[in-house]
Protein backbone atom coordinates (compact mmCIF):
# COMPACT_ATOMS: atom_id res chain seq x y z
CA UNK A 1 0.00 0.00 0.00
CA UNK A 2 2.78 2.33 0.97
CA UNK A 3 4.56 1.64 -2.30
CA UNK A 4 1.51 2.55 -4.37
CA UNK A 5 1.02 5.79 -2.48
CA UNK A 6 4.57 6.82 -3.12
CA UNK A 7 4.46 6.47 -6.89
CA UNK A 8 2.76 9.77 -7.50
CA UNK A 9 3.57 11.19 -4.13
CA UNK A 10 5.67 14.36 -4.00
CA UNK A 11 7.04 16.36 -1.13
CA UNK A 12 6.69 20.12 -1.15
CA UNK A 13 9.21 21.55 -3.63
CA UNK A 14 12.68 21.77 -2.10
CA UNK A 15 15.23 24.33 -3.18
CA UNK A 16 18.70 24.46 -1.77
CA UNK A 17 21.95 26.34 -2.11
CA UNK A 18 25.15 25.08 -0.50
CA UNK A 19 28.05 27.27 0.57
CA UNK A 20 25.68 30.22 0.88
CA UNK A 21 27.91 32.04 3.38
CA UNK A 22 31.51 32.35 2.29
CA UNK A 23 33.09 32.89 5.71
CA UNK A 24 31.68 29.86 7.55
CA UNK A 25 33.10 26.35 7.18
CA UNK A 26 29.86 24.98 5.83
CA UNK A 27 26.49 26.53 5.16
CA UNK A 28 23.23 25.80 3.40
CA UNK A 29 19.97 27.57 2.73
CA UNK A 30 16.95 25.34 2.20
CA UNK A 31 13.36 26.12 1.22
CA UNK A 32 10.76 23.38 1.67
CA UNK A 33 7.57 24.81 0.30
CA UNK A 34 7.51 28.33 1.72
CA UNK A 35 9.49 27.57 4.86
CA UNK A 36 13.07 28.83 4.55
CA UNK A 37 15.99 28.19 6.89
CA UNK A 38 19.66 29.18 6.76
CA UNK A 39 22.24 27.09 8.62
CA UNK A 40 25.94 27.71 9.17
CA UNK A 41 28.39 25.14 10.58
CA UNK A 42 31.74 26.06 12.07
CA UNK A 43 34.22 23.57 13.39
CA UNK A 44 36.09 21.74 14.69
CA UNK A 45 37.16 24.75 16.76
CA UNK A 46 39.11 25.38 19.93
CA UNK A 47 36.73 25.82 22.88
CA UNK A 48 37.24 26.64 26.54
CA UNK A 49 38.53 23.73 28.57
CA UNK A 50 35.47 23.47 30.86
CA UNK A 51 33.24 22.45 27.96
CA UNK A 52 35.79 20.20 26.25
CA UNK A 53 35.02 16.51 26.08
CA UNK A 54 37.97 14.10 26.07
CA UNK A 55 36.03 11.50 24.09
CA UNK A 56 34.24 13.47 21.38
CA UNK A 57 33.43 16.82 19.90
CA UNK A 58 31.11 19.14 21.80
CA UNK A 59 28.16 20.23 19.73
CA UNK A 60 26.63 23.66 20.21
CA UNK A 61 23.40 24.58 18.46
CA UNK A 62 22.13 28.15 18.33
CA UNK A 63 18.65 28.72 16.96
CA UNK A 64 17.70 32.29 16.09
CA UNK A 65 14.03 32.80 15.39
CA UNK A 66 12.69 35.46 13.05
CA UNK A 67 11.79 37.74 15.95
CA UNK A 68 15.28 37.47 17.39
CA UNK A 69 14.19 36.89 20.99
CA UNK A 70 15.09 33.41 22.29
CA UNK A 71 12.15 31.51 23.70
CA UNK A 72 11.64 28.18 25.46
CA UNK A 73 10.46 26.50 22.26
CA UNK A 74 13.72 27.55 20.58
CA UNK A 75 15.64 25.78 23.37
CA UNK A 76 13.57 22.67 22.64
CA UNK A 77 14.41 22.85 18.93
CA UNK A 78 18.11 23.33 19.75
CA UNK A 79 18.01 20.21 21.92
CA UNK A 80 16.27 18.10 19.28
CA UNK A 81 18.74 19.19 16.61
CA UNK A 82 21.76 18.72 18.85
CA UNK A 83 20.82 15.19 19.78
CA UNK A 84 20.01 14.33 16.17
CA UNK A 85 23.35 15.69 14.95
CA UNK A 86 25.28 13.95 17.70
CA UNK A 87 24.20 10.60 16.31
CA UNK A 88 25.08 11.66 12.77
CA UNK A 89 28.52 13.23 13.30
CA UNK A 90 31.63 11.10 13.99
CA UNK A 91 32.42 13.18 17.08
CA UNK A 92 35.11 10.73 18.20
CA UNK A 93 37.34 11.88 15.33
CA UNK A 94 37.49 15.41 16.75
CA UNK A 95 38.01 15.05 20.53
CA UNK A 96 38.36 18.19 22.71
CA UNK A 97 36.96 20.42 20.00
CA UNK A 98 33.69 22.25 19.51
CA UNK A 99 31.36 22.33 16.55
CA UNK A 100 28.96 25.26 16.35
CA UNK A 101 25.76 25.05 14.34
CA UNK A 102 23.94 28.36 13.90
CA UNK A 103 20.41 28.30 12.53
CA UNK A 104 18.52 31.32 11.29
CA UNK A 105 14.81 30.98 10.64
CA UNK A 106 13.87 33.08 7.61
CA UNK A 107 10.26 32.10 6.84
CA UNK A 108 7.96 29.76 8.76
CA UNK A 109 4.92 28.46 6.90
CA UNK A 110 4.61 25.14 8.70
CA UNK A 111 7.06 22.28 9.14
CA UNK A 112 9.88 24.43 10.47
CA UNK A 113 11.56 21.69 12.46
CA UNK A 114 11.90 19.13 9.61
CA UNK A 115 13.21 21.85 7.30
CA UNK A 116 15.72 22.91 9.94
CA UNK A 117 16.99 19.36 10.41
CA UNK A 118 17.29 18.75 6.66
CA UNK A 119 19.07 22.07 6.20
CA UNK A 120 21.44 21.32 9.08
CA UNK A 121 22.28 18.00 7.44
CA UNK A 122 23.05 19.73 4.14
CA UNK A 123 25.25 22.29 5.90
CA UNK A 124 27.13 19.46 7.63
CA UNK A 125 27.65 17.75 4.25
CA UNK A 126 29.05 21.02 2.90
CA UNK A 127 31.39 21.49 5.87
CA UNK A 128 33.15 18.17 5.18
CA UNK A 129 32.83 16.87 8.74
CA UNK A 130 32.95 13.08 9.00
CA UNK A 131 29.46 11.64 9.48
CA UNK A 132 28.11 8.17 10.19
CA UNK A 133 25.06 8.70 8.02
CA UNK A 134 22.87 11.51 6.75
CA UNK A 135 19.49 12.20 8.32
CA UNK A 136 16.18 13.12 6.73
CA UNK A 137 13.21 14.58 8.57
CA UNK A 138 9.64 14.11 7.39
CA UNK A 139 6.51 15.48 9.01
CA UNK A 140 2.92 14.32 8.85
CA UNK A 141 -0.41 15.53 10.20
CA UNK A 142 -3.63 13.79 11.25
CA UNK A 143 -6.70 15.71 10.16
CA UNK A 144 -10.09 15.70 11.88
CA UNK A 145 -11.43 12.96 9.59
CA UNK A 146 -8.56 10.70 10.68
CA UNK A 147 -6.58 10.85 7.44
CA UNK A 148 -2.82 10.99 7.48
CA UNK A 149 -1.25 13.78 5.43
CA UNK A 150 2.46 13.45 4.69
CA UNK A 151 4.38 16.73 4.48
CA UNK A 152 1.35 18.90 5.36
CA UNK A 153 0.88 22.51 4.37
CA UNK A 154 0.48 25.28 6.91
CA UNK A 155 -3.33 25.25 6.77
CA UNK A 156 -3.39 21.49 7.24
CA UNK A 157 -1.15 21.79 10.30
CA UNK A 158 -3.37 24.50 11.81
CA UNK A 159 -6.50 22.34 11.55
CA UNK A 160 -4.83 19.00 12.35
CA UNK A 161 -5.61 17.11 15.55
CA UNK A 162 -2.08 15.76 15.74
CA UNK A 163 1.29 16.33 14.05
CA UNK A 164 4.17 13.87 14.05
CA UNK A 165 7.73 14.41 12.90
CA UNK A 166 10.25 11.64 12.28
CA UNK A 167 13.96 11.69 11.53
CA UNK A 168 15.55 8.68 9.79
CA UNK A 169 19.14 7.70 9.14
CA UNK A 170 20.31 6.75 5.64
CA UNK A 171 21.86 3.36 6.41
CA UNK A 172 18.99 1.21 7.63
CA UNK A 173 16.26 3.89 7.68
CA UNK A 174 16.13 3.54 11.44
CA UNK A 175 14.24 6.10 13.48
CA UNK A 176 16.70 8.60 14.95
CA UNK A 177 14.35 11.16 16.43
CA UNK A 178 10.58 11.34 16.76
CA UNK A 179 8.41 14.08 18.22
CA UNK A 180 4.71 14.67 18.11
CA UNK A 181 1.91 16.91 19.32
CA UNK A 182 -1.78 16.18 19.86
CA UNK A 183 -3.60 12.91 20.51
CA UNK A 184 -3.57 9.82 18.31
CA UNK A 185 -3.75 6.07 18.59
CA UNK A 186 -0.88 3.60 18.49
CA UNK A 187 -1.93 2.20 15.12
CA UNK A 188 -2.00 5.65 13.57
CA UNK A 189 1.49 6.30 14.88
CA UNK A 190 2.83 3.08 13.37
CA UNK A 191 1.23 3.81 10.02
CA UNK A 192 2.58 7.38 10.04
CA UNK A 193 6.04 6.02 10.87
CA UNK A 194 6.02 3.60 7.93
CA UNK A 195 4.71 6.17 5.45
CA UNK A 196 7.22 8.79 6.57
CA UNK A 197 9.98 6.18 6.33
CA UNK A 198 9.01 5.59 2.72
CA UNK A 199 8.83 9.33 2.05
CA UNK A 200 12.31 9.87 3.50
CA UNK A 201 13.71 8.24 0.34
CA UNK A 202 12.69 11.37 -1.55
CA UNK A 203 14.71 13.54 0.83
CA UNK A 204 17.77 11.29 0.52
CA UNK A 205 17.50 11.41 -3.27
CA UNK A 206 17.28 15.18 -3.04
CA UNK A 207 20.52 15.27 -0.99
CA UNK A 208 22.24 13.13 -3.61
CA UNK A 209 21.07 15.41 -6.43
CA UNK A 210 22.29 18.51 -4.62
CA UNK A 211 25.70 17.00 -3.85
CA UNK A 212 25.97 15.73 -7.44
CA UNK A 213 25.29 19.19 -8.87
CA UNK A 214 27.99 20.71 -6.65
CA UNK A 215 30.50 17.93 -7.34
CA UNK A 216 30.33 18.69 -11.06
CA UNK A 217 31.42 22.26 -10.38
CA UNK A 218 34.09 21.58 -7.79
CA UNK A 219 35.49 18.19 -8.79
Amino acid sequence: MVEEDLKDFKLKPMKCELNFLNKSDGSAILAQGETVVLVSVNGPLDIKSTSQNMEKATLEVIFSSKGGKPTVSDRFKENVIRQTCETAIFGCLYPRTGITITIQELEDYGGLLPTTINCTCLALLNSGLAMRHVVAAVGCALDEAGNLIIDPTNDQIQTATATMYFVFDSREKNLVTGFSTGTFGEGVYDEALERCRAASDLVFNFYRDIVASYCNVIG
Binding site: D25, G128, C215
Partner: peptide, 27 residues
Protein backbone atom coordinates in the same frame (compact mmCIF):
# COMPACT_ATOMS: atom_id res chain seq x y z
CA UNK B 1 34.06 0.32 4.71
CA UNK B 2 31.66 3.24 5.07
CA UNK B 3 31.76 6.64 3.44
CA UNK B 4 31.89 9.56 5.91
CA UNK B 5 31.95 12.57 3.59
CA UNK B 6 29.86 13.79 0.68
CA UNK B 7 31.69 13.86 -2.62
CA UNK B 8 32.94 11.60 -5.40
CA UNK B 9 34.44 8.18 -4.65
CA UNK B 10 37.79 7.88 -6.41
CA UNK B 11 40.18 4.99 -6.93
CA UNK B 12 43.80 4.80 -7.97
CA UNK B 13 45.01 1.41 -9.11
CA UNK B 14 45.68 -1.01 -7.69
CA UNK B 15 44.09 -0.44 -4.31
CA UNK B 16 43.81 3.14 -3.09
CA UNK B 17 40.38 4.62 -2.40
CA UNK B 18 39.33 8.06 -1.22
CA UNK B 19 36.47 10.54 -1.36
CA UNK B 20 37.02 13.86 -3.08
CA UNK B 21 34.99 16.30 -1.00
CA UNK B 22 34.58 20.01 -0.45
CA UNK B 23 36.08 21.40 2.74
CA UNK B 24 37.23 24.70 4.19
CA UNK B 25 38.28 23.78 7.73
CA UNK B 26 41.73 22.20 7.94
CA UNK B 27 42.35 18.97 9.86
Amino acid sequence: VFVTKAGVLKKRNPSTFWVDSYQKRYI
